[in-house]
Structure formats: C-alpha cells, structure tokens
Simulated assay, not measured.
Amino acid sequence: MTIKTPSDARWLAAAARLALRGRPASSPNPAVGCLIVRNGRVVGRGWTQPGGRPHAEAMALEMAGDAATGADVYATLEPCAHQSPRGPACTDRLIEARPARVVIGQVDPDPRTAGQGIERLHAAGIEAVLLGCPHSAASLAGYLTRAAFGRPHVTLKLAMSLDGCIALADGTSQWITGEAARAHVHSRRALADAILVGGGTWRADSPRLDVRLPGLEDRSPARWVLTSQPIESAQTIAAPADIAAIPAQYLYVEGGAQAAASFLEADLVERLEIYRAPILIGDGLRALGGLNLAELAHAHGRWQPVETRQLGADTFEAFARTR
C-alpha cells in the first residue's frame, strides 16, 4: 500500500529546488529535479543538463548506482516513457534499477508520455505515486505554460519608489534601488530564456539586458524588444500577443511603463516581481501606464502574494496570477 507522508512532500520540494540548476539551460526540455532517497539519506541527485540531456533521473540513477534498488525516487515531472535517439526512456532506466517507489510531482503533458510513464512503472511492479506537488508545478511553470497555452511563462519586473515612480520627471532612473536589489534582478534574469523591454526604453536607455553576476555571465537571456520598428541588435515583436513566436519557456519583462501595462492589460503576466525602494519621488514617471479598468472590482482577486524578502534597504515582493 502506498502511503503519502509529509516527508514525501518535503523531498519533492527539495527536488524542485534542485531543478532550478537546470533552468534555463535545459530548454526546450523542462528543467526537472530528481532525488533518490534510501533510509532517509540522499543517495542520488540529478537535474536536467544543458541541452536537455542527461535527464534528471538518469543523472540521479548514475550517482546512486546499486543503492537505487529498493529506494524512493522523487521526480518533479513524470519520467519520460518515449524512446529517443539521444538516450533511453527514464521509465526504462527506473524499471531496470528497481526502486521501491517513484513519487512524482506532475504528470508530463507531452503526449508521448502523458501518464504512460506512471502506467509502465505500475505494470513493472513499482509503486508510482502522483503527489500533485505545487513546488513541482512552480519549478516547471515555463514548460507547463508552453504546453498549455503555446507561449512562454511571463514574469513582469518593476522597480519603483514607495509612491510608484520608476524615474524622475526628466527620466533619470539610475538608480531607484540599491546594489543588493540590482544583483537580485540579475539572478532572476539568469533564470529566463528571453528578456524584453519596450521600444521607448530601448531607444532611451540602450539597456544591456545581460547577466553580470560572477560565474553566471553565460546565462544572459536572448534580448527582445516590444516595438513595430526594426532593431539591429535585438529581436522584436509588435504586440504582447506575439510572444508565442519567442522560442523560450521563460520570458522576463522589464518594462518600461507602457510595455508593462500592455502585458498586464493582455493578461499575459503569470508572475509579478516588485522591487520597492524606501524613497519618495513625487512628480515622477509612473511605473505603469493605463490599464483601462472599467471598475475597481476588476482589480481585486487577481494576485496572490507568494514571496517577500528584504534586499538591503529595498523590499522584494512576488505575486502569482490567480486563475
């Protein structure tokens, strides 16, 4: 009999954190995390490698060796069940290793697997537990959004003063937030496949839109601009609805005000990240353009707080879109 215990949820949450090591370099494959646990001790760990191979389960099984037999396997996504010229299916590797259980955070929406991995594990006499872990879903947000809606998962970042300004009235904006907050922004950029700003911001500021953290410089995302005009050193889309054409799982939108408002008005933002500096600007440039709300009631019930932290003098808050 399969028993779902609090430790199952904790191990899956740990596997989800491990999966972040694969993002976004695993794209177009999902960034999956896998832990193999025997007698309460981790004997194998893995995450999807750059380019999508090896898969997380293959890496963890290689580390565990014979200790995987009779152990518990925690995988954020259902193990793949389809054959590939790049390597055997993870389901086959698990069946060969003979763990006692495989605890799974999310069913794979890929029709080549989509429940077949679980079925094959059951048929081989291995318990397969689908836990429905929210941490797993969050760690796979880009992959799941792309599968469900055919577009990237969008995070909108705003850095503002206490009174909601992103610059002085003359456009001066360096710097609203402090060094710790700016470093945190670079760590968030490093988790995205693509980054986008509006055409006005591109022309006014010539932003680099790269990652400038030691050791993560190679994680700089592809640069995109929201504009109808041609851009020489970045790719463009004419409207937020065109993001399906961006070959990415995670799109990080940095503004400015009109670009941010256009993504919010199109209801394409899944995560909102706000950096708030303890300063007052007064008659400055606002963080958002108009959202065309018909009534105030339409603004309520859309955003759920999911994270907050202090970054030096600045405050970071993250909100998830409720649907």
Rank of each mutant, 00 (worst) to 15 (best):
T76M: 03
P85R: 14
H122M: 10
P50Q: 00
D72I: 03
A100N: 13
A60E: 02
E96F: 08
T76D: 03
V73Y: 03
R101T: 08
A60V: 07
L94W: 01
E96Y: 09
P79W: 00
A64N: 06
R53E: 12
P85D: 10
G87H: 07
D108H: 05
V103T: 13
R98Q: 13
Q116S: 13
R93A: 15
A81C: 13
G51Q: 02
D72S: 13
A75N: 10
A100G: 14
R98Y: 05
A71R: 04
L77A: 01
A114S: 14
D92I: 05
Y74L: 09
P50I: 02
C90H: 12
G51K: 05
R112F: 11
A71D: 07
G117W: 06
T91Q: 07
D108V: 02
R120A: 06
T69I: 09
T91D: 06
R112T: 14
R98C: 11
P88L: 00
R86Y: 12
T76F: 04
H55Q: 15
D66G: 10
A89H: 10
R93K: 13
R112W: 11
E96C: 13
R120F: 07
V107E: 09
A89T: 08
P109W: 01
G70Q: 08
G65C: 05
G70F: 06
A75L: 12
P99I: 01
G87C: 09
A68H: 02
V107R: 13
P54Q: 11
G51M: 04
A89G: 09
R112I: 05
T91H: 11
A114I: 06
L77Y: 04
Q116V: 09
T113Q: 05
R53H: 14
Q116A: 12
P109K: 04
D110Q: 01
I104G: 01
C80D: 12
G51V: 05
A100R: 15
A71C: 06
R120K: 06
E62C: 09
P111W: 11
E96L: 12
G51C: 04
R101N: 11
E62W: 09
Q83I: 13
A81T: 07
P79F: 00
A81W: 11
G65R: 07
A71M: 08
D92Q: 08
A75I: 12
R101Q: 11
D110P: 02
P54Y: 13
P111G: 06
D110F: 04
H122V: 09
L121T: 02
Q116N: 11
G117N: 07
L121E: 01
I95L: 11
L61S: 06
A56Y: 00
D72F: 06
T69C: 14
L121P: 04
P54I: 13
C90N: 15
P99N: 02
P79A: 00
I104R: 00
G105E: 01
P111I: 08
G51N: 04
R120Y: 07
D110V: 01
R98T: 13
P85A: 10
